[in-house]
Nucleic acid binder design. Structure first.
Lengths: 201, 201
DNA sequence: CGAAACGTTGACCGTTTTCAATTACAGTGG
DNA sequence: CCACTGTAATTGAAAACGGTCAACGTTTCG
């Protein structure tokens, strides 16, 4: 008798929870393994459940450019739903698990089920919002200001190291910025690796 | 007799071209004028036709944070279609023209017209793709590499100064990087403020 | 208890930013 | 067609900044 318990059986986030099970495939990739290649005909839209995959594009100039590093919770290849071929490779950066949602099924569902479409639009809209915010954050030139804004925006929830990664700074620079802000009275230390911004004026 | 000719009568990009005219409002804003405020009930989804507007959020810490600077061609407040209030102010950064698409009408159209939904999903997907690429680009630490990748990706279309802005670099640093790349034979100068990348090996 | 990972700080060094100055065009009005 | 003016393109030099390396304290967990 086989006893397989699906660990990490988090429910799919909307709108994917409304897809019938048989149209959802699970892909287990080992680090370095390829999910699809540039030029392949798109077969699915993917959601990273665990791990991380890199989307890498081969430019005409013979250069490899990483377009996106999708982590748990991210979807990828959305635009490929409307395209005849993937425009980049997808390679696991480490052992990963992804869900694949059949392309034709997703398109059909969009055509037949307005609720699904709306939920998808909603998801994409929220993501856009998040990316724009992040882009603006990265546009802040000074590490100190960047850290302060991110802090005030509640980005420091996990470790400072992750926080630093989100900000595009080294963790050391982040610690220094935090220390400096505290010293200037613009932030407060509330525990080990825990800080909060202080209201202005 | 009044003679008003609608200048700049570019057709709306899909999927907005399928909205009936009477549900599309045109807003002319002067620099500094407010389109909506944080907390207002969302009435529409907007498309910037000319100019630029800033989305500014007031944090609990009493700080103003710019979340996004929407330029011509950008849409904004997509997520507000699904929300009870705008979560930021929208203020014109200079004289601007925007189209407003009635929120209820957009939602209704999504519910009744699958083609519209799909076109919207498509648009959002493409934008996501673009943002992710930009985010990856900004993650490249070295100015030289960043400039090269952006160049190979065809980002230098206008002035080098704009280009530099997109890259999050000073224009001087950008010029220096370009000069250096040319000198290394990794790029070629094709005219005043005009360059192109050279294929590797 | 010891390993492992995070937190924190200091020092050194290469890069970028900034400030300044110069050159090259493009458009405007003689 | 030329001087005039404003903006873009470049380049140089000094100063500020963030990355990297290194060392050490702290907390967690088996």
């Amino acid at each position: 008798m086989i006893l397989i318990i699906m660990l990490c059986d988090d429910p799919l986030p909307p709108p994917f929870d409304s897809l019938p099970d048989h149209l959802v495939a699970m892909h287990r990739l080992q680090s370095g393994q390829t999910l699809f290649r540039q030029g392949d005909r798109p077969v699915a839209l993917f959601l990273v459940q665990r791990g991380a995959v890199a989307l890498i594009r081969h430019t005409e100039a013979g250069r490899k450019v990483r377009l996106f590093r999708a982590k748990a919770g991210d979807t990828l290849a959305e635009a490929s739903l409307f395209s005849e071929s993937y425009h980049c490779d997808c390679i696991a950066g480490r052992d990963s698990i992804l869900f694949g949602f059949d392309k034709a099924a997703v398109l059909a569902l969009m055509a037949s089920n307005p609720e699904f479409s709306m939920a998808l639009v909603r998801r994409l809209s929220v993501q856009l919002q998040a990316y724009r915010r992040k882009l603006e954050l990265l546009a802040i030139g000074s590490a100190k200001e960047r850290v302060l804004v991110a802090l005030a925006d509640g980005w420091l929830s996990g470790s400072v190291i992750e926080f630093a990664g989100e900000l595009g700074l080294s963790h050391e620079a982040t610690y220094r910025a935090l220390a400096h802000l505290v010293q200037q009275g613009r932030a407060r230390k509330t525990g080990r690796g825990r800080y909060c911004a202080i209201a202005e004026r």
